[in-house]
Simulated assay, not measured.
Amino acid sequence: MKAQIQKAFKYQQLIDMMYIAKDGSISKRRVKILSVAEDSFQAYCFLRHKKRTFKMDNVLSAMPVIHKERQII
């Protein structure tokens, strides 16, 4: 998971992730990673509209957001 997060940070990609909180609740979040530390990372969370700190161990899945361009013919 750490490699995916570092790659998203390197290429400035948005990611959709499933995250488990301290209380055990699971949420789906779209984030833009701002910085990466050893066991955590800071990101702008579009769900909460704030900068948040996330623990790497609590990320259940992470997928890059892919924008496809549409052609008008």
Rank of each mutant, 00 (worst) to 15 (best):
K10A: 13
Q13N: 10
D39L: 04
D16C: 14
K50P: 08
K51R: 15
K55R: 12
A8R: 00
F41G: 04
L14R: 06
N58R: 10
Y11P: 04
R30V: 07
K68R: 13
I26H: 05
I72P: 07
I5K: 04
Q6P: 03
F41Y: 08
M17P: 09
I20V: 15
I5D: 06
L60P: 00
F54G: 00
Q12T: 15
K55G: 08
Y19G: 05
K22P: 07
Y44F: 15
M1A: 10
E69W: 10
T53H: 05
I26F: 04
Y11S: 08
Q4W: 07
S35N: 11
Q42E: 08
K68W: 04
V31H: 13
L60E: 02
V36Q: 03
I26V: 15
Q13D: 11
V31F: 13
Y19E: 03
K7M: 07
M18I: 11
Q4N: 13
K55W: 01
R70W: 15
Y19H: 07
E69I: 06
K10L: 11
N58W: 03
L14W: 04
Q4E: 11
Y19Q: 04
A62V: 15
L14P: 01
E69D: 07
I66C: 03
R29F: 04
S27L: 01
I20W: 02
I20A: 11
G24K: 01
I26T: 10
L60Y: 02
F41L: 08
V65E: 12
L60V: 08
Y19R: 09
L34V: 09
A37V: 09
V59P: 02
I66A: 03
A37R: 15
M63I: 09
L14G: 05
Y44W: 15
F9T: 07
K7Y: 06
A37H: 14
M18S: 12
K68M: 12
M56D: 01
Q71F: 15
Y11I: 03
I33K: 01
I20R: 09
M18W: 06
A43L: 13
L14D: 10
D23V: 00
L34T: 08
K51N: 10
K2L: 10
A62T: 14
A43W: 05
D57N: 12
R52A: 14
A43S: 13
M1D: 08
F54V: 00
F54M: 01
R52P: 12
K22I: 04
I26G: 05
Q71I: 15
D39C: 03
Y44P: 06
I72Q: 14
K2S: 04
G24R: 00
K68T: 12
Q4V: 12
Y19W: 04
E69M: 06
